[in-house]
């Protein structure tokens, strides 16, 4: 009985020390992690809609659904949103910039973990540029990369699906 109490006390002491040191580290890094994520998001927004001056997040219960983009005169010029689809070995997240008229302006792959040399090529400019100035109805027909059809399809399909949803939301708002 006394042994068990001693073991419990030792283990508890180690756990308390560990928890305390982790909370210290957390208090140092927490704010920076959030700032990093925000900076990355803003950079990718700028990349898919370079004409825009200001982005306004449209939220539903603290989750960002899409961003409204305004130019320097305050005119509404388009929207930007994140689409994600299941690729070959990972979830591929794409930032999409869409003009007010419903054409894709540009896309940027923000995170993926596909097979190097094959699936990772979806993140290269050669593939992303195939989306530039495409009408929504034509997105599904964008040519896939040879040897990376699953990854390519994950991008085209997720972009097309999410774009259709966003168009619907914007229509309802008007």
């Amino acid at each position: 009985m006394r042994e068990i109490l001693r073991y419990g006390a030792v283990l508890a002491l180690i756990c308390i020390t560990a928890a305390f040191s982790l909370s210290m580290v957390n208090s140092f890094t927490k704010a920076k992690i959030i700032a990093q994520a925000n900076a990355e998001e803003q950079a990718s927004l700028k990349e898919v809609l370079p004409q825009a001056e200001r982005f306004e997040a449209v939220k539903s219960a603290s989750e960002v659904i899409y961003y409204k983009a305004y130019d320097n005169k305050g005119n509404f010029i388009g929207v930007a949103f994140k689409a994600s689809g299941e690729g070959y070995s990972s979830t591929i997240d794409t930032m999409v910039g869409m003009t007010r008229e419903g054409t894709i302006n540009a896309i940027k792959i923000i995170s993926q973990n596909e097979t190097p040399g094959l699936g990772t090529r979806v993140a290269e400019d050669a593939f992303a540029s195939r989306f530039a100035q495409k009408k929504l109805s034509m997105v599904q027909e964008i040519e896939a990369i040879t040897g990376a059809s699953i990854s390519s399809r994950a991008v085209t399909e997720s972009v097309a699906k999410k774009a259709a949803e966003i168009v619907e939301i914007i229509k309802n708002e008007r």
Binding site: V10, I14, A18, T29, I33
Partner: peptide, 23 residues
Amino acid sequence: PCFIVVIATFVTIVEMTMKTYSP
């Protein structure tokens, strides 16, 4: 169990640091 707690603590520190400096 004592070793695991010590190791897990260091791993979590690495995880937080990596998230901060190299997402």
